[in-house]
């Protein structure tokens, strides 16, 4: 098993932390994992992206030229990464703010309305967890239980009351996938 994922969007959408939560979940399942962020000034207001590789074998390069799965949360990221999805790979994108729909026909394309769902849940902070839920429904790389276990492990005790909200957001994201 090996899954090479890029998650990309605006800085502030929780792209890096979504990748981190996914990476922690993989750690809980004792899989190999690398989390490689874009770092630097482009994170502030501009685009942010993170490469997460999850595998049951040792991982060579943390830097990739193509991806099994791309999770795309804005137009710039779609323009940047659509061409680098492997043929037969998966593109998951949030329709919010996308003016030009993806063109590839040799990949599996899933449109999710995660931003809309976050508005409905009245929680902008839940946004990345909704997206994560959709990703895990389409690509069950790690079980939800491992995600929750990872959250419990990494969140300080005083934030543990937020876990049910995060779980609800993940479930909401799963329901978004038809």
């Amino acid at each position: 098993m090996k899954e090479e994922i890029v998650i990309a969007g605006f800085g502030g959408q929780g792209v890096l932390s979504m990748g981190k939560i996914l990476a922690y979940a993989a750690l809980m399942d004792d899989l190999e994992v690398t989390w490689m962020p874009s770092y630097g000034p482009e994170q502030r207001g501009g685009t942010a992206n993170v490469t997460v590789i999850i595998s049951d074998k040792e991982i060579s390069s943390p830097v990739l030229n193509s991806y099994d799965t791309a999770v795309i949360l804005n137009q710039q990221s779609l323009d940047k990464f659509e061409a680098s999805i492997k043929p037969g790979g998966t593109l998951i994108y949030d329709s919010y703010g996308i003016h030009h729909a993806p063109q590839r026909t040799d990949i599996n394309v899933y449109r999710i309305d995660a931003m809309e769902a976050a508005f409905e849940m009245e929680s902008a902070k839940a946004y990345n967890m909704i997206v994560l839920g959709s990703l895990l429904k389409i690509k069950p790389i790690v079980p939800i239980e491992s995600v929750i276990k990872g959250l419990k492990k990494t969140l300080p005790e005083r934030h543990h009351h937020l876990i049910p909200m995060n779980e609800a957001a993940i479930n909401r994201g799963m329901d978004l996938v038809k």
Partner: peptide, 8 residues
């Protein structure tokens, strides 16, 4: 890269 990336 090794400074910023996360691994096990």
């Amino acid at each position: 890269i090794v400074g910023q990336m996360m691994e096990k």
